[in-house]
């Protein structure tokens, strides 16, 4: 993985995203109450979307106001003394990024389409090898060591391929990194994010314009239908 950060996961952002996380999701993100998996997907969307970044920044202002308006709870009598002592200790404050569970860098960074930079939010995360999902469709797991139960995957599809029809028990949060995907007539292009919940049973098809790469956080289990679905089910279950 390249050590040079690039602020934009989309190499040619000709159009701003058209499908955004809902207000509730952005508010939960700003409040810090969103789960690690969906939070990662929203973070990837924010990298690609200035409008949502501005809105989250506004919601963070709201957070600061809400915190400031709470009746303050006095700290213990020695709290300031402790803090002043702590800032004098050399190295006492800086925390080294070492030890169990620290992110170790990609073990097997998946091959991504030429020209695509993985989003900053994914840099330094372990990404597993590509695995078969369906004809022309592959997936790989993105490690979320800070929340091991989070289920985050990259999905890659060749043009015009279908993802097996599936429903959900829980929600699935998807961000398109490159290429485009259709759910019925609705097109999701680079930078777009969409959420599927219990009520959704969708038929996703990769647009014929090129390879598509998405990142998705899956909460609960997907319910696959059809023969391929039953074969694939054990692979993508959490």
């Amino acid at each position: 993985m390249s050590p040079t950060p690039s602020p934009n996961p989309n190499p040619s952002p000709t159009m701003p995203p058209r499908h955004h996380p809902g207000e509730e999701l952005l508010l939960a993100h700003a409040a810090g109450t969103l789960g690690a998996g969906p939070g990662l997907i929203v973070a990837v969307h924010l990298e690609a979307c200035g409008a949502c970044r501005a809105l989250v920044a506004a919601l963070e202002v709201a957070g600061g106001v809400m915190m400031a308006e709470l009746p303050p709870v006095p700290m213990s009598s020695l709290a300031l003394e402790r803090a002043l002592a702590a800032i004098e200790r050399p190295g006492a404050v800086a925390v080294a990024v070492t030890g169990a569970g620290a992110v170790t860098g990609a073990v097997a960074a998946p091959k991504v389409p030429a020209g695509l930079e993985l989003p900053l939010a994914l840099r330094g995360r372990d990404v597993g090898p590509w695995r078969w999902l369906a004809p022309g469709m592959r997936w790989s797991r993105v490690a979320v060591p800070e929340a091991p139960r989070a289920n985050v995957v990259l999905m890659r599809g060749r043009p015009d391929r279908l993802l097996p029809a599936h429903g959900h028990r829980g929600s699935e949060f998807t961000q398109v990194l490159c290429g485009a995907i259709y759910d019925g007539d609705v097109r999701y292009g680079p930078g777009d994010m969409f959420v599927a919940d219990d009520a959704t049973h969708h038929h996703l098809r990769v647009a014929d314009e090129g390879e598509c790469l998405c990142i998705a956080a899956i909460e609960g289990r997907m319910r696959m239908s059809g023969l391929i679905g039953r074969i694939v089910q054990p692979l993508v279950g959490p």
Partner: peptide, 12 residues
Amino acid sequence: HDGDGLLTPDPA
């Protein structure tokens, strides 16, 4: 993995 929460990259 206890204890590493502060050490992992912040997704946001």
